[in-house]
């Protein structure tokens, strides 16, 4: 599904160049649930942003479903973001003035989905995250946990190949975190590929595999034991 080789990202600010990502190579299979961990500034977000086609690597290759992303033009990248990737942000990134329904519809609008199908898909994903009754509300009227669930619904709506989540529970209390992670777990069970950045061990424990970053390098990989406590939550 995702294969990166020698992925490097160098930030250039004036004369100072800062390598945020150094020759990271990793492969993520379809259906995997991968967590990315590491200290602050270790390049986790940089890595995820490149996977999400929000940013381009300085060098290295990135294959998404066998197509080389660095060869795509702007419009094609937009299409990849739209069709193949569902991004979930720490700060939700919902449009505060649009209601939940319209927020979730946005990716489909950019995909050119007909209105009727949009409505149907919106209902489906809202149902999936258990927020059907909130459809008419605006993001500021609902709790943080609910907002993140809306964001997940939005990420799912175009049936992407992979969900990328950058600290999706970073702004949530433990109860809301659990709710959100339960959704991810369910999605994983249904076969969705998930890459999730987190600082927290308990969150990472939901994943089957953990990538550890430090100073822009992938330093270690771990396969998590199937821990009954987590899975039985």
């Amino acid at each position: 599904m995702i294969t990166v080789k020698q992925l490097t990202k160098v930030y250039q600010s004036g004369k100072i160049s800062f390598p945020a990502l150094k020759e990271v190579s990793v492969a993520i299979e379809k259906g995997e649930f991968v967590a990315v961990m590491g200290p602050s500034g270790s390049g986790k977000s940089t890595f995820l942003n490149i996977l999400g086609c929000l940013d381009r690597p300085t060098s290295g290759s990135y294959f998404l479903e066998n197509s080389e992303v660095s060869l795509l033009n702007e419009d094609e990248l937009a299409r990849v973001r739209n069709q193949k990737i569902g991004f979930v942000f720490q700060t939700f990134n919902l449009l505060p003035r649009l209601n939940i329904l319209r927020n979730i519809e946005l990716p489909m609008i950019y995909a050119g989905t007909p209105a009727k199908e949009r409505r149907q898909r919106t209902q489906e994903v809202l149902n999936q995250v258990g927020l059907l009754e909130w459809a008419g509300h605006r993001p500021p009227e609902i709790s943080g946990g609910e907002r993140q669930r809306v964001a997940i619904a939005r990420a799912l709506v175009n049936q992407p190949n992979v969900i990328l989540a950058d600290e999706p529970t970073g702004n949530l209390d433990s109860h809301a975190s659990t709710e959100v992670m339960t959704i991810f777990k369910k999605l994983h069970r249904q076969g969705t590929t998930i890459v999730l950045v987190t600082h927290e061990q308990e969150i990472a424990a939901y994943a089957r595999r953990i990538l550890f970053f430090r100073d822009g390098q992938l330093i270690k990989e771990e396969i998590t034991p199937v821990s009954p406590e987590v899975n039985n939550q």
Binding site: G52, L54, E74, D75, A78, R79, R81, N82, Q83, F87, N93, L94, L95, L106, P107, Y110, A111, R154, N158
Partner: peptide
């Protein structure tokens, strides 16, 4: 946000 969701330029 719109760009991230797949809006083209």
């Amino acid at each position: 946000i719109r760009l991230a969701l797949g809006a083209r330029r």
